[in-house]
Nucleic acid binder design. Structure first.
Lengths: 229, 229
DNA sequence: CGTAGTTTTGAGTGCGTTCAAGAGATGTGG
DNA sequence: CCACATCTCTTGAACGCACTCAAAACTACG
């Protein structure tokens, strides 16, 4: 179980003024490093900053009163997390591995006078987020367990995959999240995720050197299982 | 089947300059009336305007190559629809009934200099949208058929419900969308929606004077069925 | 090496789907 | 205004996929 404590994150002291060619650095922002399991913010906290992931992986979750957990999204490098609803975070956010991020003051969401470039980036990220979530609706709504799992692996493959051989026909990546996280993201149970992995393994589409390390043997076959539209 | 034709919508000629106390009217925007079934925009169209619903109901849908349809959202008065992803609409949008709306140029999304108030409203709407979609994830991910249906009716009750009696303990509203629309919104089949309606009817939580007219006899019981968190 | 947590596999159940038919509503032309 | 066609909604019966419960294999960490 993850526990929050003041040592979980580090605010790296950084002068507000850096090289002028870096637009983001012209105005105040904080750079942080989260340790694995550290909580960045809780559901309901007042939103002071929106975060940009530099390295590592974040997990955004919501838990209902009845205890049912939904993983809303994973935050990979390049993603923005923490967009507020009525001034507050509406998910919990914690780090799955050591994660480096930049916190941008929410005032940049409202005002564009101080830093038009950052404001535009945040607006763009919010619109991208809406589009991505609509894609996820198709997933949760209609796809079967094997299609959901293959879709998830396809996205991982494209976002964090590396070529596993010189020929470039095999792609490998690590899974920073547990089977339970994947299940709660896709609206399935851990046993079902495990069975889907086995099914893809038996079809010689992937291999699992370890439980958290995936090698995609046939990327096209994986996309076919995913029923990518 | 709905057919698009030039007569489906009307651009109401309106001078750009109106009473100065109306912030929205200080800059160019168009007012439109859509007839039932008229298409506002298609998936992939270049986004020129973002729309604000004044009256009526819009339906946002996505259809996959395999023909599976997902209703992303319904647009009720006060809602904004048409936020672009990389400059294009990523859903189809059509009117379920006669719908009045205002089109705001997308330039107000990017620039806030011309009209800071409108820009802030659009940004706020986009952030609200993200939050609402996250709520919907809980729905699609974990709720049972009866919970989904009761949740949907609960939201309708709160958004468009009217008191059906003087005592104020019964609420009625009409359903502008078909059972198929509700099913595609909740990730279920029409038969399942119908069975859930029957189940709520047998439990004396609702009555259906007509198929598209709902009277909620016990609002609290409906919320209980919905497992609202 | 021992304990706790995660992942995998197995067997049986249940909920929503599928397939099918009937009831009700809507619209058109004679 | 009614007959007919079409579409939507409802109900029934059987199936199948993912869940539930249970236990074993594997991993991580002391």
């Amino acid at each position: 179980m993850y526990v929050t404590n003041p040592n979980d994150y580090t605010i790296v002291p950084e002068p507000a003024l850096v090289a002028p060619q870096n637009q983001r650095s012209k105005f105040l922002h904080s750079r942080r490093i989260l340790k694995p399991g550290a909580v960045l913010f809780h559901e309901g906290d007042v939103t002071l900053e929106v975060y940009e992931v530099i390295s590592g992986v974040l997990r955004l979750t919501r838990v209902s009163e009845s205890g049912r957990r939904q993983v809303i999204a994973f935050g990979f490098p390049g993603d923005f997390v923490g967009f507020p609803k009525t001034g507050r975070y509406h998910t919990e956010c914690d780090a799955l591995e050591t994660t480096e991020l930049i916190g941008h003051s929410v005032c940049h969401l409202e005002k564009c006078i101080d830093n038009p470039v950052l404001h535009a980036r945040l607006m763009h990220a919010a619109l991208e987020e809406i589009g991505s979530m609509q894609d996820h609706f198709m997933m949760l709504g209609w796809k079967s367990a094997i299609e959901k799992t293959a879709s998830f692996l396809s996205v991982m493959m494209e976002r964090v995959g590396r070529y596993a051989d010189k020929a470039g026909d095999q792609i490998e990546f690590s899974l920073p999240m547990s089977r339970a996280d994947i299940a709660d993201f896709l609206g399935l149970k851990t046993e079902t995720i495990s069975r889907a992995f086995t099914q893809l393994r038996n079809a010689h589409v992937i291999t699992l050197p370890t439980a958290k390390h995936v090698v995609v043997l046939k990327p096209e076959a994986l996309l076919a299982f995913a029923e990518i539209d």
